[in-house]
Design a binder for these strands. Structure first.
Lengths: 167, 167
DNA sequence: GACAAGAATTTCGATATCGAAACATCTAGA
DNA sequence: TCTAGATGTTTCGATATCGAAATTCTTGTC
């Protein structure tokens, strides 16, 4: 059964037969699926008063384990975000009372971002929805299919090419 | 060999052992890979004077085949974008001379977006880079792996759950 | 054929992100 | 010690996106 990407590939084959667009068979599906999941995630989170990016940040602090504290730079590396956007995201979360900035005793240029009790509560309240949305998209795959998919994506992530970065 | 997501999963297992975060093994990798590819794509396109979203739009018109003309609504359905963002994207591309808005003879509420010769040239100039970036990320997979990956993603895309949409 | 409901596009206001530059601090080497 | 360059964070200006509302036109129904 053809999906939207099959139709796109057929269009390319007709409009530009000389061009090998086969990489799109994988990548376009990856993009489209990612966007669909993110849209649905945003919809679910709107009811919660949290955005997905804010959830990501709280989750990154939480899973770091007590005392749930990381520097902005560590957060920038964990989440794919510019340092400027990180500053603003932290501003919002601090204004909401979900994180606190404290002085960094090791480096006075820096700062430590700490998850507050309210931040932890907000995170745990949204975590169920987060996993639910993912699960609903994964539903058509059995355990073996999920493992296969995770393995293939991991192979691509581990390869240093592409952008040469360690993201 | 563990990747970043393996580390995240291990952190979750330690910080919240009661929560089943296994959907993240697939989804977090999908998100991260998508973001990495998009960042690299943006970097390559910057040198070209085109943005990825603008490329997507031109490509959608081009592969529709002559006369390379679609309505904004058709473009909104083909690309995952709000109608407001589509209006602005079309404004930019029209200002750059890459598309033209013409009256729609079938529906006077609507409009037809036509790819210009300059738009086609810009598209074809960027297409090689677009495919190169994808190929560089797919490099670690052989033909069978790519087919497997495309198939698994297609299975998820075809499933009507998740957001119930036909995106 | 008039009118209500729906659809296509645009406008509007808000905001999250980006790259570049500014600023403060740290580190390594002479 | 002093200095030059690197690093962590924030500020700045620009802009792409969003949801909601406004506008214009079409369609189906009585």
């Amino acid at each position: 059964m053809p999906d939207q990407v099959d139709k796109v590939l057929a269009q390319w084959a007709a409009a530009a037969p000389a061009v090998d667009v086969s990489p799109m068979a994988v990548m376009s599906r990856l993009f489209r699926l990612g966007k669909r999941v993110e849209k649905e995630m945003a919809r679910r989170f709107r009811d919660h008063g949290l955005q997905e990016g804010e959830f990501d940040l709280l989750a990154t602090l939480y899973r770091a384990g007590p005392p749930c504290a990381l520097t902005p730079q560590q957060l920038v590396q964990a989440i794919l975000l510019s340092s400027a956007a990180m500053t603003h995201r932290l501003d919002r979360l601090e204004a909401a009372g979900f994180v606190r900035r404290e002085a960094n005793p090791d480096d006075r240029r820096s700062v430590v971002v700490v998850l507050t009790a309210a931040g932890q509560a907000a995170l745990l309240g949204a975590l169920g929805d987060y996993l639910d949305v993912m699960e609903s998209f994964l539903a058509p795959l059995d355990t073996a299919g999920r493992a296969q998919l995770a393995g293939l994506l991991k192979t691509m992530l581990l390869h240093p090419d592409g952008d040469g970065g360690v993201l």
